[in-house]
Computed example of a mutant assay.
Amino acid sequence: MALTLVSAVVSDTGPYRTNNEDVAIAGRRLAVVADGMGGMPDGEVASDLAVRALAPMERLSADDPVAALHAAFNRANEAIGAAAAGSAERQGMGTTMTALLASGSRMVVGHVGDSRCYLLRDGHLRQLTRDDTYVQALVDQGVIRPDQARTHPHRALVTCALQGTPVEPAITVLSHLRGDRFMLCSDGLTDEVDDETIAHLMSTVEEPYECAAALVKAAIAAGSRDNVTVLVADAEPID
């Protein structure tokens, strides 16, 4: 069965930031969240360039969606590199990016950095992406427990991002079913809100926009000091 996405996004600058470096697309075929790297110049420019590079995929079908999404990530990376090369002030700028592309009965997930994609299926929450961070490497090595990662002092240290240098996005393909709910977010959510709370809100708040808003509200209430962006997308049959 061919499915499409019914999606909505909510983004909040947060109470401690003066600008929002998160950029997102909530489409019928394409969902994207990019988070400009804090502490680097022009993070909002990098995230905007990255999302613009993927935007045409909302309108264009591809015989090979995996190759198409991979190529789009490469275009995004190249656009950021070109922008940085043309301005000394933009050296080092970059962004994370996570994207979902609906293709028939399959979903293709592309990922670089520490923005995340989750799947809620039959009441069970599953993280589809792996964070490209120093702290995640410590978890993988058994140095710290997963529950310690959220409060680790170096949790914001990203080890892979779109910055114009060679990068290999992680690409995952899965079958998606009617009733599946996907959620993409910047780390402004997951730094403050645990998986149990995320699962509860995704399971109980029915409408995608209201669900995204509830998750953003939870992050702000928990004391998020970052921009917070949440995109909720439900898989539904194509009319």
Results as ranks from 00 to 15, higher is better:
residue 37 M to R: 01
residue 135 V to G: 12
residue 24 A to D: 05
residue 36 G to L: 04
residue 120 L to C: 14
residue 97 M to A: 12
residue 43 G to V: 00
residue 132 D to W: 15
residue 107 M to I: 15
residue 34 A to T: 01
residue 114 D to A: 07
residue 71 A to S: 09
residue 19 N to A: 11
residue 54 L to Y: 01
residue 127 Q to E: 11
residue 133 T to Q: 13
residue 102 A to H: 05
residue 127 Q to S: 13
residue 98 T to M: 05
residue 83 A to M: 00
residue 17 R to Q: 14
residue 55 A to C: 05
residue 136 Q to P: 09
residue 118 Y to C: 13
residue 120 L to D: 05
residue 139 V to P: 07
residue 31 A to Q: 12
residue 87 S to Y: 15
residue 62 A to I: 03
residue 89 E to T: 11
residue 144 I to R: 14
residue 102 A to F: 15
residue 17 R to H: 05
residue 97 M to W: 01
residue 139 V to L: 11
residue 117 C to Q: 01
residue 56 P to T: 15
residue 59 R to V: 03
residue 105 S to N: 13
residue 104 G to M: 12
residue 140 D to G: 02
residue 129 T to W: 12
residue 136 Q to C: 04
residue 67 A to Y: 15
residue 84 A to V: 12
residue 35 D to F: 00
residue 136 Q to R: 13
residue 65 P to Q: 05
residue 29 R to M: 06
residue 119 L to K: 08
residue 111 H to Y: 15
residue 143 V to R: 06
residue 138 L to G: 08
residue 140 D to F: 06
residue 50 A to C: 03
residue 115 S to G: 04
residue 35 D to T: 02
residue 52 R to M: 06
residue 20 N to S: 05
residue 136 Q to F: 15
residue 99 A to M: 06
residue 116 R to I: 06
residue 139 V to C: 11
residue 108 V to M: 01
residue 145 R to E: 12
residue 85 A to Q: 10
residue 106 R to F: 03
residue 133 T to W: 15
residue 79 A to P: 08
residue 21 E to A: 05
residue 43 G to H: 06
residue 21 E to G: 00
residue 24 A to S: 14
residue 130 R to C: 08
residue 60 L to T: 07
residue 86 G to K: 14
residue 113 G to S: 08
residue 85 A to S: 13
residue 63 D to K: 08
residue 58 E to I: 10
residue 33 V to W: 00
residue 43 G to L: 10
residue 17 R to L: 13
residue 35 D to I: 05
residue 26 A to G: 07
residue 70 H to A: 09
residue 131 D to G: 04
residue 125 L to Q: 11
residue 96 T to E: 00
residue 101 L to G: 07
residue 102 A to I: 09
residue 28 R to T: 08
residue 95 T to N: 10
